[in-house]
């Protein structure tokens, strides 16, 4: 029992904001460099990839559309875990993580919608249909906007953290709906073709560039998320220090 307690204590001790800042400062340049390298290789592979026998050259849009769509869901899942961290353990980094992730997730979701639309026009003959997959991703985008608004509507992070965490948890119901919408309903969007029972249905000449681009954009997400978390911790320190400065100035005038 005491061993478990000390282990938990050690874990929490490690994950404090100051340790995170030291770790991020050392790790971010490497992560940024690796991101640039993988994205450059992925972009080169995408340009070299052959045309699809049905989609033609528009398959190139898939190399960015699929990673954006995947990240829009991964980002929300990370925010849901952070919401649990806020509500269950009240961990100080959990709310910082959720708040920093929301704008990045919103951008990736918007890009998934826009690139999907730019693919849909030449391939489906329409920019947009209100079917299950497209609508559920649009709802995800609105969820991100709602969360961003809520995190910035309340000045005190201690108060906004709980409200944001509850909203995020409730909104997580949308993630399995997005994932399985193509199986549950009749939609224009094709069913899963990369991660599916019985292996991928994509030819290796197109699958490899897609996977490298997906890894590159995932690394980009983590680089941006870590930097945004660092900014948020600085922002909170600035607010705390301004408060201290204001209080000591007040005391001086009273005396």
């Amino acid at each position: 029992m005491s061993e478990t307690v000390s282990k938990t204590a050690r874990w929490i001790d490690w994950a404090n904001p100051t340790r995170f800042m030291t770790f991020a400062a050392a790790f971010l340049p490497w992560l940024g460099g690796l991101t640039t390298l993988v994205l450059a290789v992925g972009f080169w592979m995408s340009m070299q990839a052959p045309d699809d026998y049905q989609q033609g050259a528009t398959v190139k849009i898939m190399f960015i559309h699929v990673p954006f769509a995947w990240l829009s869901m991964m980002c929300y899942t990370i925010m849901t875990l952070a919401a649990l961290g806020t509500l269950v353990w009240r961990h100080p980094l959990a709310d910082v993580s959720a708040k920093a992730a929301a704008p990045i997730g919103a951008v990736f979701t918007a890009l998934a919608l826009v690139t999907g639309s730019l693919w849909g026009k030449p391939m489906w003959g329409t920019w947009w249909v209100w079917d299950a997959r497209l609508t559920s991703v649009f709802v995800l985008f609105l969820m991100y906007l709602g969360i961003i608004a809520l995190t910035r509507a309340i000045d005190d992070p201690a108060k906004s953290a709980k409200a944001t965490a509850i909203l995020t948890l409730v909104g997580f119901i949308n993630i399995p709906i997005i994932k399985f919408s193509v199986d549950w309903w009749n939609t224009l969007h094709q069913p899963a073709s990369v991660l599916r029972m019985g292996g991928s249905t994509i030819d290796p000449s197109l699958l490899w560039p897609l996977l490298v681009m997906a890894i590159g954009f995932t690394l980009l997400f983590f680089t941006l998320h870590m930097q945004a978390m660092r900014n948020e911790i600085w922002r909170r320190r600035v607010v705390a220090m301004r408060r201290v400065a204001a209080r000591s100035a007040e005391r001086r005038t009273v005396q």
Binding site: A57, T58, K60, I61, V114, L118, W119, P122, L220
Partner: peptide, 25 residues
């Protein structure tokens, strides 16, 4: 192919949006 405009638009919009996000951070 003749869909070059759509492909360029998709990559262009993505590049601009990500550049703004990175710049903002």
């Amino acid at each position: 192919s003749n869909h070059a405009g759509f492909i360029l638009a998709a990559y262009g919009v993505s590049f601009i949006a990500l550049a703004i996000l990175i710049g903002w951070i």
